[in-house]
Simulated assay, not measured.
Amino acid sequence: MTKPVIPPNAASGQQDALLTVTNLKKYFPIKGGVFNRVINHVKAVNDVSFSIKRGEVVGLVGESGSGKTTVGRTVLRLEEPTDGSIVFDGTDITRLSKPEMRRYRKRMQIVFQDPYASLNPREKIRTMLGHALAVHHIGRPEEREDRIVKLLEQVGLTGDYLDRFPHEFSGGQRQRIGIARALAVEPDFIVADEPVSALDVSIQAQVVNLLEDLKAEFNLTMLFIAHDLAVVEHISDRVIVMYLGRVMEIAPTRKLYRSPNHPYTKALLSAVPNPDARARPDRIILKGDIPSPINPPSGCVFRTRCPIAIPDCAKVIPVPTEVSPGHFSACIRTAPQGAALSTPELQDAP
């Protein structure tokens, strides 16, 4: 009997999901010609589905250009989705107006990749964190000073830093301030967009440990975006692997790192440094560069670099299919025999 395809968001227990993303697309128009008309689209996110349970940290990984950051920004409506739905705590926020969306800004926050660029260089830390509290009417004005000091202490800083400007801090300290700003409004959900990629390795570990501690203290739900699989393994409960705008694999962290199913995931993991030479998998070298999202390959978008691709890979778009409990993979070569594997190749219209 053929096993039906289970949508990848079922892997997280949709009934307890704080965030459910279904068939999300984000296309950026390319304009040109005499009349500056739309002549093509960058398909940054192309039919992505997943969900995140309350209190869960889900890692989102892939090479540069895979669409990770666009997913994070679109989920928060910092970018408007082209198609699909984003359900946050039971409400589809995809079509909400800007005034309606304002109610959810307090509950959904972001920690940016570049801690210096994300902070106003003309504002002292006292003013910066105070704005966040005032905009969302958190606490009385006379109480906010104490709340700001407490926020700094929660991220490993002290009240002595209140009257300093961003340029007076190290990179790691600035990222801690960015985290404090996100926490100031007491959010339910945080997108951490490569929050450690701009930091030294020793500082990366400190910031990741801080996020882990804050997750436990505040029961945070988080989408943790990164290209460093070693960092993602340390903090995530589950991992989503993306390539060229599509989901390749979703699995619990331990299962994905021990038994990856998709050839792209195997290639990424083979490149992770491992001090134990006996445990290090054979390095898989991917040929060529990631194709352009303006004109992605037909069928499986990974097929042009895949070491096990066959002609059928060019004809169908693989659907993420459950290969073991809670483990989904979009590959016609590695899915269980008899599983429903793919959908016909369709022309994606913006």
Rank of each mutant, 00 (worst) to 15 (best):
Q109I: 00
Q109R: 03
K106C: 02
L18S: 08
K43L: 13
I86T: 06
V87G: 02
E63H: 12
R102P: 06
S85W: 00
S12M: 13
G59E: 07
D83Q: 13
F35T: 12
F35C: 06
V45N: 09
G72L: 02
F112R: 10
V42R: 04
K106Y: 05
G13V: 09
L96G: 07
P81A: 03
V61C: 07
N36G: 15
P99H: 11
V21D: 02
N23P: 00
I110P: 01
G32V: 13
V75W: 00
L60H: 08
L96H: 07
E63M: 13
V48W: 07
G65W: 03
L18G: 12
P8W: 04
I6S: 10
R37M: 12
D114E: 09
A11Q: 06
V34S: 11
Q15W: 01
S49R: 04
M108T: 00
L60M: 15
P99S: 13
I30W: 11
D47F: 12
L76T: 07
S49A: 02
G72W: 02
V45T: 09
G13K: 09
A44V: 09
V38F: 03
D89R: 11
G67T: 01
V58I: 14
V57E: 00
D89T: 11
S85G: 02
H41N: 14
V34K: 14
L78N: 13
E56R: 03
L19W: 01
D16K: 05
G62K: 07
K53Q: 11
G90E: 04
N23I: 02
N46M: 04
Y104D: 10
G65V: 07
I52K: 03
I39N: 08
T94P: 02
F88D: 00
D47H: 09
E100Q: 15
N46E: 12
T20W: 01
M101V: 08
M101C: 04
S85V: 01
V57G: 00
N23F: 00
V57N: 07
V111H: 01
Y104P: 10
N46F: 01
L19H: 02
P81C: 01
D114N: 11
R103F: 10
S64P: 03
T91C: 10
P8N: 06
T74K: 07
R73G: 05
T69S: 15
Q15H: 14
Q15G: 06
R102L: 15
I6C: 03
G32I: 13
G67H: 06
A17H: 03
T91Q: 14
P29K: 10
M101N: 05
T74C: 10
N46H: 05
R77I: 11
A17C: 09
Q109C: 01
D47S: 10
L76K: 04
Y116D: 05
V5F: 09
L19T: 04
R102T: 09
N23H: 09
E63G: 09
I110Y: 04
K31E: 14
R107C: 00
I52Q: 01
K43R: 15
I30H: 12
Y27F: 15
Y116E: 10
V75C: 00
N46V: 05
G32L: 14
R95H: 15
G13N: 11
D92Y: 13
N40A: 15
Q109V: 03
G33Q: 12
P115G: 06
